[in-house]
Design a protein around this nucleic acid. Structure first.
Lengths: 351, 351
DNA sequence: CACCTTCGGGATAACGTTATCGCGAGGATA
DNA sequence: TATCCTCGCGATAACGTTATCCCGAAGGTG
């Protein structure tokens, strides 16, 4: 049995030097080492030199965990998003803004799974992160109540959280759907259909509702044109079938999110797609390379991510401030697919 | 001055209960609380009940940081990749594999920036993560030597690290380029050009070299067909110009990575692109929706990510094992763009 | 009945930092 | 020259856990 960390054998980590070792090596007090490490200006130059020499000699690097335990802050914020490792400009903006603020980012994928979301959020709380940004998935976040009461800062992104009151930043879904509809209407379309996410999801609910409102506002019938639901090839295919067949088929589509847009494009194929007016809600990768290039309502994702971090920082600074909701405007990106004119018959029909 | 954490005022965090508080509440010793929290079976049922009641009453949740400091392990591995928040199946696989192993993942973007990479890696070392996976960017990682000596496990992904000896998992670049070339050659192409990443980058070097080797192996001239360099619209455009003009223009292209592929497609436009044989190295999002759909040499990114975690876990378990290099096979994904036949003249020319 | 083992629980010392004191030396002031 | 600061450093107590002892009460055995 070697006393401590002999290099040989199995799991013998070499045992790193600590501030105590540095202090002994430098012949100063432990506290002085700490001061030097933290650039405390009240240390005499000769002491600084001695300590720095000892640090270099022993190859000492401070243990961030101990510092965090002692000071109470981790300098780290968590982000629980649906998927890291997929295009997510909001997450990119979060990372960048966090870095600019001197914060480390701990990002995890909830994978659209409510149980995973819960695990991740509670794990982040156990780690005493300085704050958490979450794209909520579940429909009940009451389990966070105790953490909120203990002062854990939480900000919701993309949709509000249910059961608890936290800051929230999200896109102007209603305005976006309205813009998309108006755009297609201007190009002569009177039969416009909506296919999107399930109304069990908050944003799906908002967007479907906004679409119905747009139809009503233009004095158009709603019959069979609104298709929220699961985003599977089958469901989307069935919705397309329903919408494009019959005596008065739709001449244009609004797709409620990226996955729906892609499912629709894959199902239609290039030829059919090019004959319809199509506006997607949310950006699609390579939208410019498709034929026709895809017109979308783009969310200001960078703004959303940045705002999320700022809301979080504000709450960290003042945990008692009232919860706030920020709505971020959206913008049309006109690329071609939304400007396909309605067939004359249909346009005349309702003109 | 409130004594400690009064709820009113500015930064007054409510002060969470600790194990000591739970012990007092339950009327047991601190150690017993710890045992209950860690499901130690040697605790009598009535004590378990008392402690659990106290935990519930005080709403106690253990501080993971303190546990980490005491036990020495963080249960967290770091991943320094080029971009989180962009499509990265390897990172997705890392996250999934890590989770399956009970490890938390801390992912950060190096953003192709050597200085940032260094900051991130050293920060991860300061946090005493259990291990680090890195897609190396810089050309000199000597600054990690001390950490490696102190037993910090590191695994390189996609390319080896320079200056230090660590485990590495990467794609079979040479075979992939060979396959791409062979594929185009089979479809009659004798003038095949390569446009790819700079040879300052390891993978760029390997792929350009493999392409030259393929030309030589087929007895074809190399003159002006190999274009490694920065991936900018200008540079790629110039390379295309050079390759497609002149008396004997290329009839097919191999693009050395995703960004190059996209730059080439954007520059060519759909009409010109559809007349060339094109095989991309590495997958492209929505490759199936392009026209023609894009044929690529796909890396087995899921395998790479999984292997990276496994190598890391093996090294954590046995820090003294010799460094290992794993090469992962690649595969053609035939979709159309690579099967455009060479124009008759050119095919006959060299037949 | 004495003794040895086992079992369940409690004091207490770590883990590696930072924060709170206090103290001695030096210069400024009366 | 005595006194009062100020400055610079050191001893020591936290931070919230887990790990190492140790000890008292059972229970079994000679």
């Amino acid at each position: 049995m070697s006393p401590a960390g002999g290099g040989s054998g199995a799991a013998g980590r070499p045992k790193r030097p600590t501030m105590v070792d540095v202090a002994r090596e430098a012949g100063v007090a432990l506290r002085t080492v700490s001061r030097v490490v933290n650039d405390d200006p009240t240390v005499g130059p000769e002491y600084v030199a001695k300590v720095k020499a000892a640090i270099a000699a022993l190859n000492f690097r401070p243990d961030e965990r101990a510092r965090q335990l002692r000071t109470g802050v981790t300098g780290t914020i968590g982000a629980a998003v649906r998927r890291i490792a997929e295009i997510n400009p909001a997450l990119a903006a979060i990372e960048q803004t966090a870095r600019a603020s001197g914060l480390t980012l701990l990002a995890s994928s909830t994978d659209f799974d409510e149980a995973r979301e819960r695990d991740i959020l509670l794990s982040m709380c156990r780690q005493r992160l300085d704050g958490i940004i979450v794209e909520p998935i579940g429909e009940n976040h009451g389990y966070l109540e105790a953490e909120l009461a203990d002062g854990m800062p939480v900000v919701a992104m993309d949709r509000p959280m249910s059961g608890i009151s936290v800051d929230c930043v999200m896109s102007d879904n209603a305005a976006g759907i309205g813009m998309a509809f108006h755009h297609l209407h201007q190009h002569g379309h009177r039969r416009v259909a909506y296919i999107g996410d399930s109304e069990r999801v908050y944003s799906g609910r908002e967007r479907a509702a906004a679409f119905r409102a747009a139809l009503l506002a233009h004095g158009l019938p709603v019959d069979g044109l609104v298709h929220p639901g699961e985003i599977t090839a089958e469901r989307v295919g069935a919705a397309l079938e329903s919408v494009l067949s019959g005596p008065d088929p739709a001449t244009a589509l609004i797709t409620g999110n990226t996955d729906t847009t892609l499912a629709v494009l894959r199902r239609l194929g290039p030829a059919a797609a090019s004959r319809l007016g199509i506006v997607g809600f949310d950006e699609v990768p390579l939208a410019d390379l498709l034929q026709p290039a895809l017109t979308v309502v783009a969310q200001d994702t960078a703004n959303i991510g940045r705002t999320a971090v700022e809301l979080l920082r504000a709450r960290i600074a003042d945990p008692s401030r009232p919860a706030q909701r920020v709505v971020v405007p959206v913008a049309m990106r006109v690329r071609g697919s939304g400007e396909v004119a309605a067939p004359a018959a249909s346009a005349v029909n309702a003109g």
